[in-house]
Design a protein around this nucleic acid. Structure first.
Lengths: 219, 219
DNA sequence: TGCTACACTTTGACTAATCAAAAATAATAC
DNA sequence: GTATTATTTTTGATTAGTCAAAGTGTAGCA
């Protein structure tokens, strides 16, 4: 029923509301996240409210209703299952799948998606380590621990890569920085906001603090 | 570059021009084939001409340019490869794949399509027996021989099913009327415009002339 | 040759999604 | 407590694709 555009709005708002937990999602974030002007976002919010997908308070922000959340969750599921398919089955590169899935997610039906899910063996997370919601919209919570939250010398398991940009993903792949791998924090240079890492038997390398915070780990 | 709508117009016009070979495709056929009003078709033709995808002569009809033909052919390729994937890999039913492919064909990129082609083993035809154009837009010509063009007693190989409707496809599947199977013309009742058929060891059944013309065969 | 019926075109209107730019409001600084 | 800045809303315009309904051409028939 919702258009591809609406699906994108709801997916983005859901993601934003999960990241910055603060009740309402502000207009500005929605506009930048979707790459539209603020005015466009405002007018779209009124439509989405009319359709009961969210509640909108002028100059406050926006909060999804259960039905809006459901649609957003479906879109995340579609996106991540498609990404998994593109890597696992068709052998596309880690870094090129995001944009492909971004388009396909609006075209695939529930019926085909469920077949795909079975074909892939009902995966729990996509190639970047992001959890795949169930059909009913239940999603595993990601650990909050990043590469910065351990002491030097600790060995950690990489859980998830939050940065979606092809450039960073290519870099990460080259360094072995992928979900499932073990990584050791070799050095932590606070003054230079840089850490040094080593993935298994691969060469050491450095990462800035900002980037390091986009890699989630567990012990 | 072309929108999904334009892709659909060009695909339909290409198919119509291959079916009824008569130079120009008339407006009326385009409108019915796309399910739009005649006025809509007329105004769209002017846009498509402006983009050099076809030439349009008022009250005469329309003829694709090479670039328009190329896009149409790409769409047919996408559609048929997707149908093959949906049946072969995901196990969807013969009768439900058309509409799914109709949507997905506008969302799949060339890169993903080529991977899919390789994954499927570069199939030559889709599950209905329709030839799949190559990447360069070369398409095998279908035989023109239908179930009606043989004498009683002849054994023929089913090449292609032209009727796309789920209802007929379900019927055809139940009777074993699928590409690759051998079928024998048991009886031909001209006065009742009906033929009787038997596929391999399955029970005999009847088909009207009109329907029988939508099944292509070879000896 | 002229009339009728059908095929096609024109016109005007509508919807979804967007932008640019002006106006309003809130937040922050001083 | 005003002034400045940042954020958000309004307004008016634009584009692609569509329809309904009125107008125009044309081919066949009598």
């Amino acid at each position: 029923m919702p258009s591809a555009t609406v699906e994108n709005y709801l997916k983005s708002i859901l993601k934003l509301s999960m990241e910055c937990e603060r009740g309402e999602v502000p207009m500005g974030m929605i506009a930048t996240s979707l790459g539209v002007t603020p005015g466009t976002a405002t007018s779209m919010m009124k439509n989405l409210q009319k359709e009961k997908w969210l509640s909108y308070k002028s100059r406050k922000g926006v909060r999804l209703t259960p039905s809006g959340k459901k649609i957003g969750m479906i879109m995340i599921r579609r996106h991540r299952l498609l990404e998994t398919f593109l890597v696992e089955t068709l052998g596309l590169d880690w870094s090129e799948i995001h944009d492909e899935a971004e388009v396909l997610e609006h075209a695939i039906s529930e019926k085909v998606l469920e077949r795909l899910d079975i074909f892939l063996g009902k995966p729990r997370h996509d190639p970047h380590g992001h959890p795949i919601p169930t059909k009913n919209g239940i999603i595993r919570r990601l650990p909050k621990k990043t590469l910065l939250d351990s002491l030097v010398g600790t060995k950690m398991k990489i859980e998830s890569i939050l940065d979606q940009s092809p450039e960073f993903l290519n870099f990460a792949q080259a360094k072995g920085l992928m979900p499932g791998r073990m990584v050791t924090l070799v050095k932590n240079e606070k003054v230079a906001d840089t850490i040094e890492l080593q993935v298994e038997k691969m060469p050491k390398f450095s990462l800035g603090y900002k980037t390091a915070q986009k890699i989630l780990v567990s012990d």
